[in-house]
């Protein structure tokens, strides 16, 4: 993806601040990311905003409803709509969550944890390959935050690694999700990251979260990124080749200056570890 101004850090394109982002110069992301589900088939005012955004920024897509881990069949009609959208907006990165959002023919619109099991690994590998064949591009699969495992027979890092390596897909490494899971499930975040297929990481997510009790953090995307996640980000980027990095902020949107401060901080971190890269594969 050709990034703006040789920078690496993008921001989630949200309707809540789309007008400000497009009309002001306060926020200077290298690219924007959007969920195709929220824009496919939409016309009128929002289509105009999307087209303006596409003129101004490179776009990456982060899906919500593909439901790669679902027991249900893939929704091929929907997948072809995504393919058309990706082509229309010259999208170079399409990522999805390693979770399921549809089951027994009902969409739930949230990310449910897949049992970490061998048969689920094989099931998902086959589905990722099918998706990549249809889209004619690699899928980047994201490690999700989860609040309980379900019927696990292997650890999370093994589950992710086997899927990424077996399918040939890329990995979207969500650093905040690693932090959230390490807190909720009491493991060492750095050790977890070292077990992931880091050579396949093509994209990073950063976000804020909310700690709601002594033992639980919820991945809200509604707060600023905390210091410990920045530290984990710095540690992680030192292990990786340069890739695009995305700040997710979906709720409780602050002034754009605050968002830019977070982007700048991330850019400063990666500029130290990655030096100057122009084009990111």
């Amino acid at each position: 993806m050709q990034l703006k101004d040789n920078k690496h850090i993008g921001i989630g394109f949200r309707k809540d601040f789309s007008e400000e982002l497009l009309d002001s110069t306060i926020l200077k992301p290298a690219f924007i990311e959007l969920a195709p589900e929220n824009w496919i088939g939409m016309g009128g005012y929002w289509k105009k905003q999307l087209d303006k955004a596409a003129e101004k920024f490179p776009i990456s897509c982060h899906g919500l409803s593909l439901s790669i881990g679902s027991p249900d069949d893939l929704d091929l009609d929907f997948l072809y709509k995504i393919k058309k959208f990706i082509k229309q907006y010259n999208v170079q990165i399409y990522s999805e969550h390693l979770s399921y959002a549809k089951c027994d023919n009902a969409h739930l619109y949230d990310l449910l944890p897949i049992p970490f099991r061998k048969d689920a690994v094989e099931h998902i590998i086959a589905r990722i390959k099918q998706v990549q064949d249809i889209l004619e591009m690699p899928l980047a699969i994201e490690n999700v935050s989860y609040y309980t495992p379900v019927a696990a027979e292997m650890d999370e890092a093994t589950f992710i690694s086997e899927i990424v390596n077996g399918s040939g897909c890329n990995m979207l490494l969500d650093v905040n999700n690693v932090y959230v899971n390490s807190f909720n499930h009491n493991y060492n975040a750095k050790e977890f990251i070292s077990k992931l297929p880091l050579n396949k990481v093509s994209y990073i997510h950063m976000a804020g979260h909310e700690q709601i009790s002594d033992t639980v953090i919820i991945d809200t995307h509604g707060e600023a990124v905390i210091e410990k996640v920045f530290e984990l980000f710095e540690y992680t980027t030192a292990l990786l080749k340069p890739v695009p990095v995305l700040l997710e902020r979906d709720f409780n949107i602050p002034e754009l200056e605050e968002l830019q401060t977070e982007l700048t901080r991330m850019e400063t971190i990666v500029s130290k570890t990655w030096k100057k890269e122009h084009v990111i594969a």
């Binding site: 027991p71 399921y100 739930l108 019927a151």
Partner: peptide, 30 residues
């Protein structure tokens, strides 16, 4: 599908719980 019935069943139970709020019997959960 390459999923075993037992895995499918666990996924189905969790999804159904999210829809109805009726607590299911799930394996290995918090």
């Amino acid at each position: 599908s390459l999923l075993k019935e037992s895995t499918r069943e666990q996924q189905s139970k969790l999804a159904e719980y999210c829809k109805t709020g009726i607590v299911p019997e799930l394996t290995g959960i918090l």
